[in-house]
Nucleic acid binder design. Structure first.
Length: 723
DNA sequence: ATAAAACGATTTTTT
DNA sequence: ATCGTTTTAT
């Protein structure tokens, strides 16, 4: 057999990993070292060379996108479809198991999947139902508690006997939440994992079946697994089926949501016969960029140890720009973007601007709009999380299942049909007293005189409408069902009547939902045996959809550092490198947190292929207030100076540009004017470049000989004017 | 039932 | 500052 297509294009380390024997393997794959390639070629190697059936492989990823990409690459390499191969996310695969074994798992056949928004609303309802004050017991906190317990494999029953009053209250909420999920047949994300793990552990014959089936377990982004995910993998693997885990401890950036970097370190302890491979040759970045990354990450303790190298060129030095404020930072970046595309051969979509937090995108957007630079911001609300989409899906859900109280609550007065708070409070009380669902309570109430006649009338019409809707959509194609719903519910008309951009996009989104329903792949084996509408709803929960429709214009890419993981760009700006912002103020006390911030910076740096630009602002507006004298991030200092050049175009000026436009006179004349030579006790001598404001808030920009340009508040700065 | 005002939070995000 | 949520007033 000719193995050239599978092994020919691999380097030594990659080839060793791909052709590893049937023992547990841990591949420490540095940024840009061909991590996905190794995984894909390993699968191809097993199937084509080792003659392992694709049916006996289980490949797990974190995102749907990664799963889809991996499948596509495998099929491309093998040159044929591999339908029987299980590739999916932890959640997707768990879901599939639970659908197949719903009875053994103790679920309802038609259990629904709650996304985190659904879950939050349910937790909130539970808290209120227990008579607790939801400002004292924030639903988000309770949800976090429940999820983190589940991620540790702990049920409410496992938590009895806690002393702490606070904790006991949370456990009470957890208990009630579990009961409600049980009653309504709802399963949240963490539950998918925990429940499928419990299924395997409790039903020996099912476990035996899957251990017999999956002879090889492959995992991507292993450093991001949490406690239960690792447990889940080990359970599938048992004693005989080797785990092939690929990851990079230096790119672990999700500790705050439960990822256990220790998993990667414990792998060798858990699997005594494990082989460890290191991929250190980088195919992405210049030597300079890699040196910067290596130096930075060298400041972390307890690493697995790894040093990236390349056969490529040295490349340009890393550039550092000290901006006066966030506007200046954005202007500088915009200038550099313009320069990049000026020669006409370079594209904007090979440029990324990476920031620590989403709020930072705003200033860049403003500047890009004013300079007509096309850009795209990643992140934000996903398609299936948008209110109008959730509304439409709630109609679908309620039509299929009138007992779904959350959906009932959501749409009973959306669009407005005269059913207000008062009516709903009465109805809720009534339903609780009768131990019935809102739907049944409403049906009952409309027959009695519980509600005011006007409300009863409106409610009756709503019930009638929902019944008609259910009859009308029955038997239709999914696409037609959705189409009918958005029209008959009045949602389309409701948003159509509003004006403004937002309303327009809501209408478009609703129409897009019809398209999504049309394109939804019902034949996918994941949804085998399910009703189309139910399958579509699961799809909506499990795959929230991209933020924006595919806009393949040539756009500058704006995103958080987290969102950039796995991507690469010719030119990368890592912006906002200030102490307190990146690393964030919250992370600075705890060493573990700080190391994760450093890894995040490492991820950012290693996204760059050709040129890396770092920026920070000496002054920045945050939460309305301005902060001055920001220190540059410690991460900047952790990059050797010889790899960097400082760019300060403005500071090059000996004299200010516009001394004519601003008078430079302040309310209480201090003698400080644009162009004045001044002395500062800390920063030394400099020239006043610009001024802003008046009176006590007057600020001046001073270009210091040694410190560069800074904005100072005149009343605090105590400047001495020199002759 | 709707509009205005007060309140509060505010790293990162996938499933 | 700004955005989303909740309370209060009309």
């Amino acid at each position: 057999m000719d193995v050239t297509p599978i092994l020919g294009c691999l380097n030594g380390a990659q080839r060793e990993a791909v052709t590893a024997g049937n023992v547990p393997a841990l591949v420490i794959a540095g940024a840009g070292s061909g991590k996905t390639r190794v995984l894909v070629h390993r699968i191809a190697w097993l199937c084509d060379v080792q003659s392992v059936s694709p049916y006996s492989l289980l490949a797990v990823t974190f995102t749907n996108k990664a799963a889809a990409e991996m499948r596509a690459r495998i099929e491309h390499l093998l040159n044929h479809a591999v339908g029987g191969l299980w590739i999916g996310t932890f959640h997707g695969i768990s879901h599939r198991l639970l659908r197949a074994h719903w009875q053994e798992a103790g679920l309802k056949e038609n259990f629904q999947v709650l996304d985190s928004g659904d879950q939050l609303r349910l937790v909130k309802r539970i808290i209120q139902g227990l008579g607790l004050d939801d400002s004292k017991w924030p639903p988000k906190l309770a949800r976090g508690f429940i999820n983190s317990q589940k991620e540790e494999g702990l049920r409410a029953a496992d938590l009895q006997g806690r002393e702490d009053q606070n904790e006991r209250q949370l456990i009470r909420i957890y208990t009630a939440y579990e009961q409600e999920c049980e009653r309504t047949g709802s399963v949240d994300f963490a539950e998918l994992l925990l429940r499928s793990l419990e299924l395997l552990l409790k039903k020996a014959e099912i476990l035996a079946h899957y251990r017999e089936k999956f002879r090889h377990i492959l995992v991507d982004e292993f450093q991001d697994t949490n406690a239960i995910q690792y447990q889940w993998l080990k359970t599938f693997a048992g004693e005989d089926n080797p785990v092939f885990a690929v990851g990079d401890d230096d790119q672990s950036i999700y500790g705050w949501r439960g990822a256990r970097i220790e998993n990667i370190r414990n792998f060798e302890r858990d699997y005594k016969n494990a082989q460890v491979f290191r991929l250190e040759q980088n195919y992405r970045s210049t030597n300079t960029i890699l040196s910067a990354a290596n130096s930075l990450i060298g400041n972390n303790a307890g690493r697995m140890g790894k040093k990236l190298w390349t056969e490529g060129s040295e490349g340009e030095p890393v550039q550092l720009y000290a901006a006066f404020n966030e506007q200046d930072e954005a202007r500088y970046v915009a200038d550099r973007v313009q320069q990049w595309v000026e020669d006409g051969t370079k594209r904007r979509d090979e440029i990324a601007i990476l920031y620590r937090s989403n709020v930072q995108s705003r200033v860049f957007e403003e500047v890009f709009i004013s300079q007509s630079i096309p850009y795209r911001v990643y992140g934000g609300l996903r398609f299936f999380e948008r209110a109008e989409i959730r509304d439409a899906l709630a109609y679908l859900r309620l039509a299929k299942n009138p007992d779904d109280d959350p959906s009932f609550e959501r749409i009973v007065n959306t669009p407005p049909r005269g059913i207000g708070q008062r009516t709903m409070t009465q109805l809720r009380d009534f339903a609780r007293a009768r131990q019935s669902t809102l739907w049944n309570a409403a049906a009952e109430a409309s027959r009695t005189d519980l509600l005011a006649s006007r409300s009863a009338n409106a409610m009756g019409k709503f019930l009638q409408f929902m019944q008609n809707l259910e009859e009308d959509i029955r038997g239709l194609e999914l696409e037609e069902q959705v189409d009918l719903i958005i029209q008959m519910s009045g949602l389309l008309e409701h948003h159509g009547r509003e004006n403004g951009e937002k309303a327009k996009s809501r209408v478009e989104n609703l129409q897009e939902l019809v398209t999504a329903a049309r394109d939804f792949d019902l034949k996918n084996e994941l949804y085998a045996g399910m009703q189309p509408a139910d399958a579509f709803l699961v799809h909506a929960a499990l795959e929230a959809g991209e933020g924006q429709g595919a806009q393949w214009e040539d756009c500058v890419q704006l995103m958080t550092l987290h969102a950039a993981k796995g991507l690469e760009f010719a030119l990368v700006f890592v912006v906002g490198l200030e102490e307190g912002l990146f690393p964030t103020g919250m992370s600075m006390e705890e060493p573990g947190r700080l190391e994760e911030e450093r890894r995040l910076c490492y991820v950012g740096i290693t996204r760059a292929c050709q040129q890396l630009v770092l920026t920070y602002a000496e002054s920045r507006r945050r939460y309305g207030a301005e902060s001055y004298y920001n220190s540059p991030s410690r991460f900047i200092n952790e990059i050797p100076a010889e790899l960097m050049t400082e760019v300060r175009p403005r500071a090059m000026l000996a004299k200010p540009v516009h001394s004519g436009t601003k008078a430079g006179l302040f309310a209480k004349d201090t003698g400080v004017r644009i162009g004045s030579n001044v002395n500062h006790s800390k920063f030394g001598k400099g020239v006043v470049m610009d001024c802003e404001g008046a009176g006590s808030s007057a600020r001046v920009q001073v270009n210091f000989e040694t410190e560069g340009c800074k904005w100072l508040v005149l009343s605090y700065a105590n400047l001495d004017v020199l002759a």
